[in-house]
Simulated scan of single mutants.
Amino acid sequence: MTVRAVRGAIQLDQDERGEMLDSVKTLFKEMLDANGLGQDDLISVIFTATQDLHSVFPAVAARELGLTDVPLMCAQELSIEGALPRVVRILVHAECERPKCEIRHVYLGGAAALRTDLAGAGLAGAGGVR
């Protein structure tokens, strides 16, 4: 089995616990669905959040989805002038037979602006850039 990395990001409207949990759950499910992954395929997950998000750890959303046997880690995103605010990023490491060129990265809401290169490649989806 090959190990692949899947990226995703979502921009929140506000730093509120409920919005954080709902947004991260939506993004996480989209990432798994877009790549045909199940929880048993997951090796580890890294979450980052911009400095303006501090209502709850993004990993709590994954635990609420039942992810109890996968290592999860949260970190703070670099604070770069002009960076998009209120963004949670996810990096999933998974066992997957898909070639790299078939991995779908998911960028929802305002976070689609982070990967305009993917939109130009014809990878825009209804939920955001993939």
Rank of each mutant, 00 (worst) to 15 (best):
H93R: 05
V88D: 03
E19I: 05
P71C: 05
E102F: 07
G109Q: 06
F28G: 07
P71Y: 04
D33S: 03
H93M: 10
A83Q: 13
A113V: 12
F28K: 01
E102R: 12
V6K: 09
R63Y: 12
G122Q: 12
L53S: 10
H54T: 05
G125D: 15
A124Y: 10
V24F: 09
R104L: 08
D22K: 00
A62I: 08
V106S: 13
R98I: 01
Q76Y: 06
V88S: 04
A75Q: 06
D33R: 07
C101A: 12
I90S: 04
G82I: 06
S23H: 02
G82M: 07
M73T: 10
G18P: 00
R7M: 09
A119L: 12
G125Y: 15
H93S: 08
Q14V: 05
L53I: 15
G110Q: 11
G66E: 09
G82P: 07
L108K: 14
P85A: 09
M31R: 05
L42F: 01
A49F: 11
D40G: 11
S44R: 14
V87S: 06
V24H: 08
P99N: 12
N35L: 03
A49H: 15
L108H: 05
A111Q: 10
V45T: 15
M31V: 02
V106I: 15
D41L: 09
E97L: 11
E16G: 00
G120T: 07
A113T: 11
Q51N: 13
K29C: 03
I90T: 08
G122V: 14
V56S: 11
P85R: 11
A111P: 10
F28Y: 14
L32K: 01
V6A: 07
E95P: 00
G110E: 14
A9Q: 05
L21W: 00
D117Y: 03
L65N: 08
E81R: 09
T50D: 11
Y107V: 03
E30L: 07
L91N: 03
A59Q: 10
Q39N: 04
V6G: 05
R115K: 13
R86P: 01
A121R: 15
E19W: 00
G109Y: 09
A124V: 15
P71K: 10
G82K: 09
Y107T: 05
T50Q: 12
I10K: 06
Q11D: 01
V60I: 07
L32F: 03
R104D: 04
G82R: 08
R98A: 12
R104E: 13
A83Y: 05
A5C: 10
L84Q: 09
T50G: 08
C74T: 13
I80Y: 08
G109I: 10
L27M: 06
M1Q: 14
D52V: 02
E30G: 00
L42A: 13
R130D: 14
V6T: 06
C74F: 03
L78E: 11
Y107E: 05
V6D: 05
I103S: 09
D40I: 03
L72H: 06
H105V: 06
D15K: 00
V24N: 04
R63D: 04
P71Q: 08
G38V: 04
C96F: 03
A5R: 11
S55W: 02
P85E: 09
L21Y: 01
Q14T: 08
S55P: 07
Y107N: 02
T50W: 09
M31S: 02
D117F: 02
